[in-house]
Amino acid sequence: MKLDKYTVGKRYGKALFELAVEKQAIDDIYQDLLTIRQIFKKVPDLGNILSDVRLTGDEKEAIMQKFAQGFEGVVNNFLWVVYEYNRVDDLLFMIDEYERRYDSLNQVALGTITTAVPISKEKQQEIEAKVADIFGYKTANLTPVVDESIIGGVIVEADHQVIDGSLASQLNGLRAALSKK
């Protein structure tokens, strides 16, 4: 049975994080993983290329050599294990899992902030501070999303919870209350 990308990402990311804790290299490995993510942004098909059956083993290994040469120690070994198990196309899922564990350890809440119009950086920081306080984290890192359908207000999703302060939600609640009468 072939595992889906999310399951693979969770397993490998967890294993890497546990090894990073053991080696006391959590931050260094995290920085290397951010670099790898940037490489994948510049070359989005890298994972597919290194998994492509149309390339010979030597061709893929030459590409992998260039890719892995910028990393040392645990990260270099990790990249080669991922390559050997033909999972390079799942690498971003692994990085996501490591980052989720890293943020949890550092008490950083991740999520989104949805508004009808773009908000200023200052307003975003103000909302992030409130969300961190509400959920009991040191900080919150919320990705802004613009969705005109919410009409106005804010929807915050973080730590698997939703704070819905949108005008659309309030109007729907009012509509439901009025329809009961």
Rank of each mutant, 00 (worst) to 15 (best):
L3G: 11
Y6N: 15
T7W: 00
V8P: 15
V8R: 12
K10Y: 07
A15N: 05
F17R: 13
E18S: 13
L19R: 01
E22R: 13
E22V: 01
Q24V: 04
A25Q: 12
A25N: 13
I26Q: 13
D28R: 10
I29Q: 08
I29R: 09
Y30E: 13
L33R: 11
L33Q: 10
L34A: 10
R37W: 06
R37E: 00
Q38W: 03
Q38D: 02
V43G: 09
P44Y: 05
L46A: 05
I49W: 07
L50C: 11
L50H: 09
S51I: 04
D52M: 07
V53T: 11
R54P: 02
L55K: 06
L55C: 08
G57T: 06
G57P: 03
D58K: 12
D58E: 12
K60E: 04
E61V: 03
E61R: 10
E61A: 10
E61T: 13
A62V: 04
I63D: 12
M64K: 15
Q65K: 14
F67H: 12
A68Y: 02
Q69F: 06
Q69D: 14
G70R: 09
G73W: 00
V74K: 01
V74S: 10
N76P: 02
N77L: 07
N77T: 05
L79T: 07
W80I: 12
V81F: 07
V82G: 14
V82R: 13
E84L: 05
N86W: 00
N86Q: 11
D89A: 15
L92R: 03
F93I: 04
D96E: 06
Y98S: 14
Y98L: 12
E99Q: 09
R101C: 03
N106P: 14
N106Y: 05
Q107C: 09
G111P: 02
G111D: 02
T112Y: 09
T112H: 12
T112D: 12
I113V: 14
T114H: 14
V117L: 15
S120Q: 07
K123I: 08
K123T: 09
K123N: 12
Q125L: 01
I127H: 02
E128G: 08
A129E: 05
K130R: 13
V131T: 14
A132C: 01
D133N: 14
I134V: 13
Y137G: 11
K138E: 06
K138N: 14
K138V: 12
K138Y: 08
A140E: 02
T143N: 09
P144G: 11
V145E: 02
E148C: 00
I151T: 05
I151G: 14
G152M: 05
G153Y: 00
V154F: 03
A158M: 05
A158L: 02
Q161N: 11
Q161H: 11
I163Q: 15
I163A: 15
D164P: 09
D164M: 01
G165D: 03
G165S: 10
S166Y: 03
L167G: 09
A168T: 04
S169I: 00
S169F: 04
Q170Y: 03
Q170A: 12
Q170F: 00
N172F: 03
R175E: 08
A176H: 07
A176C: 05
A177S: 11
S179G: 10
K181Y: 01
K181P: 02
